[in-house]
Amino acid sequence: MRNLFLKTIYDKRWFIFGWSLGMAFFAYIMVIFYPTFNSGGLVQSMLKGMPKEWQGIIGNLSDLTHLSTYLASQMFNIRMPMFISVMAIILAGGLTAGEEDRGLLRTLSALPLSRGRIFIHKWLAAVAISAITMVALIIGTYIGSWQIGQSIEFKTLMILSGLLLLMTVALMSVIFAIGTATGRRSLTTAVGTIIAVVSFVLTTFAASVDWLKSWDRLSIFHYYPAPDIARGTVKLSDWAVYAVVIVAVLVVSFVIFRRRDLNG
């Protein structure tokens, strides 16, 4: 543990283990259920009978014909972003306002560590943890596809996972920024939760509720169109939006964090 980055990874080892296992297991379960969805019959007739307003959650039935589009609509779209939002809120909130609340930020600041270095190492550690869980998701997907004897295109899975990672980092950076700029845990958790829930509602129901369509751009999930990616449409503007959000919130919070009073 030579530096704060490694110490943070070590500190969070059980968090990493738990979330990686959870993501891998979730992906594995979703993949091994694919033959049931794909075989028609009861599941498809049940899905057809659902109201139109729930289309955003269920996804397009035509997507169920291929493993990659099935995973994109049933796992990567909405469900995985929501799952990952919970992780981002806990992780970024805990590393920033959580540690400050417990007085640990003062302990670090008493060492010859600049606030800038503390900020960067913690953020990099959060990004690395997100990346590790994404690798676990990919591994779980491959194990499941191997078990059901189906293959998933490597490039598609990489783009789906890559943009999901960028979305996670963007959401995590927003929460991280609030945590470092204010040091207030309740505010950090509340804003993170509001972003995730509002994004879920907007993106889920915008597909079938007309007046929500214009508001959908405010959703952080809007720029992660997993079914479109699986069908071969990759928009660089989606990647750019997340990149701009990350840079903007980090720059502002970095400037504030270096000068403000530490709590605890």
């Binding site: 110490k7 070590y10 500190d11 417990r102 302990t107 060492l111 270096r258 000068r259 009073d261």
Partner: peptide, 24 residues
């Protein structure tokens, strides 16, 4: 607050209620 870390190279600090990393 921005440059205090420079002097901390030659400064030690302890307080009675100092928070330490409990998982270490």
């Amino acid at each position: 607050p921005t440059n205090a870390f420079k002097s901390h190279q030659q400064l030690g600090f302890a307080s009675g209620d100092m928070a330490l990393f409990e998982s270490l």
